[in-house]
Design a protein around this nucleic acid. Structure first.
Lengths: 225, 225
DNA sequence: ATCTGTTTGAAACATACGTTTGAAGGTGGC
DNA sequence: GCCACCTTCAAACGTATGTTTCAAACAGAT
């Protein structure tokens, strides 16, 4: 029980601290002291701080991508020959994320926040690692989106997918703070699951909006259709 | 020409590096060497690295918030007693951002990326600084949004505003990379202005989506409406 | 009980950071 | 010309970081 204990304690502490403070802002000493583990243990078990970051992601991303593949399989089966709808596709993704086996009660929000950080804090090594490890389910998701929105031009689809990713990553990456603000302002308590459930209709509606292109006034005289 | 030259050179270099790499990942030595300025100049002219970050934001946020107030004034005048529509409000914001006097051609994307970072890299001091300096135009924008979406519950409006902010900040903050990817994939060239023009209909549609709340399956049996 | 390979521990290493110092340059006013 | 002030410069300071070292502790097998 020696090894796995130390390794897991490091992963737990690192996961939480990374989610709270970001990668650069979290030192190995913070991690090891929170994990009640010797400083050298990180480099012994993981080799480097960057590899530790990869390990933190792999620990939840690998089961997640497996769950996701199953959900997509199930979706393919259910819809048969005709393509899945946009809401079905988004919902499959959401359900997979929410259903993930959680280590702690904050598991899901840590998960989301880390994904957001991965996208935002453009750490080159992390992006490379994620791309080469999890490109398959990602590509499959993209294909489903394409089939679900045949009326969109490729260019519009491309940008709207970015908008979706942004809305999701951004909101989820600050979900804790945003939940607190809402509680203080309106006295409403919220879970990450509820946020996800609100997000899906928003994204689907934006994705399926008519393709009217507005043109920007070049200098003056702002008028709106 | 001595003082202003050094100060501006520092601000230019800092702005670009912060946008590229984030705050913690950018050292004063990188900034001063890019600006071809002595290391001590930053602490001499700005006092500290944090104050430099504030100065970088103030330099573009102050004129922007002035432009924005004017755009909102104009909008109020044009719509008279009845509230502005959602698209009008978003459009006023977009036009103000795009019309900002640019120092460089990349000005607008740097501007967006920094705003995104400010939201994401939860640097306590930055958030505090922005809140107390620019709360007025922000609050005014929020009020316009509220008037434009009277059918939304407060909670839904709150979350959908976060979704909008996320889609915008995220996309704009990576706009350079995303534009490159699109060019390589589909051979289409894009400007930041075009992205903004595509963003507005997406956001408006998402904001005005019907408020159906989907419920998440707790354990198994994923079925979608 | 002893040996072997693995894991922990305290300490040190080299490096990078933000900041401070004090002298040297430069500039305008008198 | 001299003085006062502002700005630049090279160097150093103290601290924090990721990583390495090597001896001690431990575990399981023989």
């Amino acid at each position: 029980m020696a090894q796995s204990d130390t390794v897991d304690r490091i992963l737990d502490a690192a996961e939480e601290l990374f989610a709270e403070r970001g990668f650069s802002e979290t030192s190995l000493r913070m991690i090891t002291s929170k994990a009640k583990v010797n400083l050298a243990a990180v480099n012994y078990h993981f080799g480097s701080k960057n590899s530790l970051i990869h390990a933190v992601f792999a620990r939840f991303l690998t089961p997640f991508s497996a769950t996701l593949e199953l959900a997509f399989d199930e979706l393919d089966e259910r819809t048969g020959k005709q393509p899945a709808t946009l809401e079905q596709t988004l919902w499959a993704l959401t359900v997979s994320a929410v259903r993930m086996p959680q280590r702690t009660e904050k598991g899901i929000s840590i998960f989301m926040r880390l994904l957001g950080l991965a996208y935002t804090q453009s750490q080159g090594h992390l992006r490379k690692f994620l791309e080469q490890e999890y490109s398959q389910p990602f590509g499959r998701f993209m294909n489903l989106l394409k089939e679900a929105t045949p009326e969109l031009s490729s260019v519009d689809r491309y940008w709207r997918i970015q908008f979706m990713l942004g809305a999701t990553a951004f909101t989820m990456s600050s979900s804790d703070a945003l939940i607190d603000i809402l509680e203080n302002k309106l006295g409403v308590e919220t879970t990450v699951q509820e946020i996800a459930a609100r997000l899906v209709p928003f994204l689907a509606a934006g994705m399926e909006a008519p393709e009217k292109m507005l043109t920007l006034p070049s200098v003056s005289g702002a008028s709106v259709a």
